[in-house]
Design a protein around this nucleic acid. Structure first.
Lengths: 123, 123
DNA sequence: AGTTAAATAAACCAATCAGTTAATTAACAT
DNA sequence: ATGTTAATTAACTGATTGGTTTATTTAACT
């Protein structure tokens, strides 16, 4: 099985790393800049390591400009993970249908049809 | 920050656990049944632990029927992770657009396309 | 040449993880 | 009562993770 998707999900499992990705979604920036919001609670080498994890997962690409290492999102690497997770969309939507049905059974002994929202997509 | 999404991504980072989820997408089944395809390469307690990780992440729900523990998908727990990752869809789609544009610049006779790498921020 | 700035590497540590084997619980069947 | 089946718990191990502090690289600026 794909080891890259392992690394992708594993990289996304850390809140600091997700925050770094969120920052990068606003635009390319350097390691120092990415580290700045965290330096109160962790060291620069810690951030450097997080960035390396993201890089190894293919989620970001690190360049070089003088001493700086400008990082940018490499979002397509996320696509594989997104595609995997998307195959389950039908299941959680189906579950909402079941919740919907359940709510009807407990709220409509004599009620009018309020929940006409059709969620089933068919598959 | 949300510790539940941490646990979700972390649970999804393991191929055995993803295989278990894939099996459960076909329908509810017991721990033994889930373990069966893996017993050549790992022990039952190992699978039992994987299932507990999935349960703690809220990705599956474990019931009881006589001695068996029937497990079923609880896909809505995946939705939070899916939603997070979906916010980046625009970026990987845009990236493909940019790749497309880049390929055009290098295959065009008049190529002197010096891209400034600046991403369109703000929206 | 010496200094500063940006980032990483090295060495270390505690905690968590993924697996093992052996023992145990719980429910059922003789 | 005894045994069988399904699954978990306990105790242990080696590898990985996430962080630290200190030292080093690399490139620019006087």
């Amino acid at each position: 099985m794909s080891v890259t998707i392992d690394r992708t999900f594993s990289a996304l499992a850390d809140p600091t790393r997700r925050a770094i990705l969120a920052r990068l979604a606003l635009g390319e920036t350097t390691v120092s800049d990415l580290a700045q919001p965290f330096l109160g609670s962790m060291s620069l080498p810690a951030i450097s390591k997080h960035i390396k994890v993201l890089e190894n997962a293919g989620l970001i690409i690190k360049g070089q400009d003088k001493q700086s290492r400008p990082c940018r999102l490499n979002a397509p690497a996320m696509k594989e993970a997104a595609d995997w997770i998307e195959t389950y969309r039908a299941y959680w939507e189906e579950s909402f249908d079941r919740l919907d049905a359940y709510l009807k059974t407990i709220t409509t002994p004599s009620s009018k049809g309020k929940t006409n929202g059709k969620r089933s997509e068919g598959q």
